[in-house]
Amino acid sequence: MEEHKIRVLVAKPGLDGHDRGAKVIARAFRDAGMEVIYTGLHQTPEQIVEAAIQEDVDVVGMSVLSGAHMTLFPRVKELLDENGADNIILMGGGTIPEEDIRELTEKGYAKALFTPGANTDDIVAWIRGVVQ
């Protein structure tokens, strides 16, 4: 049986243009053999969830460097759940303080969050571990 190719949506919400991390991670996922869809910049939570459902992805990886992570992750999670897409794993990265990471992951708004300095191989391995 052919192995399921993991599909990831790399999403860049918010008004900022810091797309270095999103692009590096998108490329690392692609090099690791995943199907990657990159939304481009300035996406609203609604646009991200619509793209995730349309593209039938396993994972949404959201890159947030604007400081708005405490509103964006809960909002996207809420929209995924509302649209019957609670099977899609929401994870992300960016400049997110430790305290906020704890709160977002404990409350289930994000499955995991990676900060600057994280190794892309570790992130790939983490995704392979959680996508059944």
Binding site: G14, L15, T44, S66, G67, A68
Partner: peptide
């Protein structure tokens, strides 16, 4: 170029 009360500004006012 968005005012603070624009829907796209939600969560980003005064942040960075």
């Amino acid at each position: 170029g968005y005012d603070s009360d624009h829907p796209r500004s939600f969560g980003e006012v005064g942040r960075v």
